[in-house]
Simulated scan of single mutants.
Amino acid sequence: MAILETIVIAFWAMLPAYVPNNAAVLAGGGQPIDGGRTWGDSRLLGDGKTWRGTAAGIVAGLALAGILNLVAADVSNAIGIDVPEFAPLAALGLAAGAMLGDILASFLKRRTGRQRGAMFPGVDQLDFVVVSLPLTALLAPDWFFKVFTWGVIAVVVILTPVLHVTTNVIAYKLGLKNEPW
């Protein structure tokens, strides 16, 4: 697989995992998942992890996977690279795994004494990848191992932090986030 093809497939395959956290920021608010509970002297997750944001993120990832499925053949023909269609359980694994990864990162932040919005290098950029890929492999193994070759996984691990930092800076400049990371 040529490098350009690998990059395109990696980006396309990860879109249902890339979008949920952004959608959660836009639709968030409401009841926190942890209900205000604490563990020791800090919140379990914090006010930034809400049921509404989580649900909106998962729905956004699933909707995007559906839209990508509708245009996959046309995109493949236009660019000369066969982009994958998403099996329903693969889309669910990517979207829900992204949200779960972000929730687990919030839990880790609280356990390490970091406040909401505090920087946590590495974890902030790859939390959703570390959970969405294994969850997708568990829910849709045939699809996962066909799409996520070692080369695609390597591109995801390299590309994701760059995209994460870039989109967060844009969201910060647009006033959608309180910090640029």
Rank of each mutant, 00 (worst) to 15 (best):
A154K: 05
L45K: 09
D102C: 09
I33G: 06
V71H: 07
S76H: 10
N168L: 04
G151C: 01
I81W: 00
I58W: 03
G28M: 03
A23D: 07
G117R: 12
R43A: 13
A60P: 06
W181I: 03
T167L: 08
T136V: 08
E5D: 15
F145E: 03
M99P: 01
L104Q: 01
V165W: 04
R114Q: 13
L44E: 03
V165G: 00
N77H: 15
W51L: 05
R114M: 11
T50F: 00
A95K: 06
A63V: 15
G113R: 10
A137N: 04
L94S: 05
N21K: 11
Y18W: 15
R110F: 05
F107G: 07
F120C: 07
L139S: 06
G48C: 07
R111T: 04
F128N: 03
Y18S: 14
V152N: 00
V165K: 02
F148R: 00
G122W: 01
V25M: 06
G35Q: 07
F145A: 03
A73F: 13
P88D: 10
L138F: 15
T38Q: 14
G80K: 10
T112K: 10
A55C: 11
S132G: 09
K109G: 05
N69K: 10
V83I: 12
P32H: 08
D142C: 07
V130A: 13
L138R: 04
R116F: 11
